[in-house]
């Protein structure tokens, strides 16, 4: 394969990812629940923590804002990306997606990125609007590190989305699983409740959640202490989610083809 072929192939891959992302954004914009998850929920969460918190320090406010951003993003990610494959199957497009010559995982990751982009954008705008109105004392993130953190959150959301999307197709208990994932991570992820306040045997769970490390990183970068080890942990966990999601997707398609347990058409 020559350089031109590689460039052409890369262009097609990017096209598929971009088109899938765009498609998911359109779908989510037409879904009222998106507004609840990306505007109402973060607004309520932020108002609760800001209006009830007493003696908030600038660093503490930044930590809370980061926590709200990531918490809301997590909820929107599970709902926005988890249902991707199940919805595709219901629409009858999954068969064509998995029998294309392009890797179908690109479609799922693309849709995850689209969902994440929309969600994180709307959540960030909601938070910014509230902060502008309330003007609490807070430290400001370094723009570069903020972009790095949010980009990684986006990527992490897309890869975990691939994992969850497969899980949702493979089980009939998608709703229950999504609730466990959303609220489990809310409680155990360390984004709203500091991990050291969790019961001892459960404290370690936050260490396998990439958003926990991203919060550490973003909070640190807001207070001038850039924690690259947290960033590295988030990168490693994101890669781990990607590998697990990829393997699960392959397993799902193989099982569908061999055992005919999943009707993809």
């Amino acid at each position: 394969m020559g350089f031109a072929d590689i460039v052409r192939r890369g262009g097609t891959v990017l096209d598929v990812v971009a088109m899938s992302a765009r498609m998911r954004i359109f779908e989510l914009l037409a879904t009222p629940a998106t507004l609840v998850l990306t505007v109402i929920q973060p607004a309520v969460l932020l108002l609760v923590v800001l209006l009830t918190g007493e003696g908030l320090t600038p660093a503490g406010t930044s930590a809370l804002v980061t926590g709200v951003l990531l918490t809301a993003f997590w909820g929107a990610t599970v709902r926005g990306t988890g249902a991707v494959l199940a919805r595709d199957r219901a629409q009858g497009v999954l068969a064509r997606t998995v029998t294309g010559t392009m890797d179908a995982r690109l479609v799922v990751v693309g849709k995850g990125l689209g969902a994440g982009l929309l969600c994180i954008g709307q959540i960030a705008l909601t938070i910014a609007a509230i902060l502008l109105v309330l003007r609490p004392p807070m430290t400001v993130w370094h723009p570069g590190w903020l972009v790095v953190g949010l980009a990684l959150a986006l990527l992490s959301g897309a890869t975990v989305g691939l994992l969850i999307a497969c899980l949702f197709v493979l089980t009939r208990y998608a709703m229950q699983i999504s609730s466990v994932l959303i609220y489990g991570v809310y409680v155990l992820g360390g984004m709203l409740i500091p991990p050291e306040m969790l019961p001892g045997p459960l404290g370690w769970l936050s260490s396998v959640i990439s958003l926990h490390w991203l919060q550490e990183f973003l909070t640190g970068s807001a207070t001038g202490q850039v924690d690259l080890s947290s960033l590295s942990m988030a990168v490693v966990l994101t890669a781990g989610y990607a590998v697990a999601g990829s393997l699960l997707f392959t397993r799902m398609v193989t099982r569908a083809r061999s055992e005919a347990t999943l009707d993809l058409v």
């Binding site: 052409r8 097609t12 598929v16 088109m19 899938s20 010559t101 479609v107």
Partner: peptide
């Protein structure tokens, strides 16, 4: 979209 998935440049 489906054209791209089918490998059409």
């Amino acid at each position: 979209f489906f054209g791209m998935l089918a490998g059409v440049s």
